[in-house]
Amino acid sequence: MSTHLNPMQPQQTDSASPTGTARIGLTDKPQTRSTYRADGKLIPFLLDSAEQSWITHDLCKLLTRRNHSSILCHVDELASTTEAQIFEHLARQGASGYEYRLLPVTSPQLIKRLRLSHVVLLVPANLDAICLAYQRIKLLAEETTPEIGIVMVGPRDQHAAWRYFRKLAVGTLRYLDIPLLNLGFLPNQITPQCGPADHHRDNFLTRISERLLRSEFHTGNLEVYRKSG
């Protein structure tokens, strides 16, 4: 079961709409709804490095296998384009009837620009990476704070995963007042070389996907708003 370290309610973010439909705002108000409208839930992942993309790839396949049709949407290449072009790209893919769209991103600045309401951070289990993840969360929280879920990658065991998660979560709570959601871990025995049929790998990824679904850790139906004029 997914756990918030902080028993308090998650912070209210600007991106949550009154209807429960997540909203991505581009710039300051006033905004008008654009012609882009895409059904499907968006799960953004902030990767520590591009080498972690196998994790989102496998999660996408696993969700599809479990009758939640999913697709990977890559926008890193569009980082130099305008937000509108990125949203148009996302909206176009969302129109293809997929239930979930997984969005692996390596740039925290891009996540910040898109002002997404939920972000999953894939964090390697070492002190340097924990510190880097903290800095990235600090960056994301400079404007609107998204709900942040953590997947620890590469700890020795569950105990080590918890210790690293706790270090990060206590730090973000103490200094940034941001609670983190523990979405699970992938132990160091799980690598891309394990192969997709590896039961061990499958089990850990299944647990992460279940936590994502159970905690409804996604942006909801994507509505894209654009500045008027």
Binding site: P124, D128, L132, R136, K138, Y164, K167, Y175, N188
Partner: peptide, 29 residues
């Protein structure tokens, strides 16, 4: 052999700096 994941490619310069207290907190597990 199972290679470990590569080290982060994030440009640390573009991230906000840590205060002394934060840096001290993250110095050890």
């Amino acid at each position: 052999d199972r290679p470990t994941l590569a080290k982060s490619s994030i440009d640390a310069d573009s991230l906000p700096a840590l205060s002394e207290e934060e840096a001290s907190y993250f110095r050890q597990l």
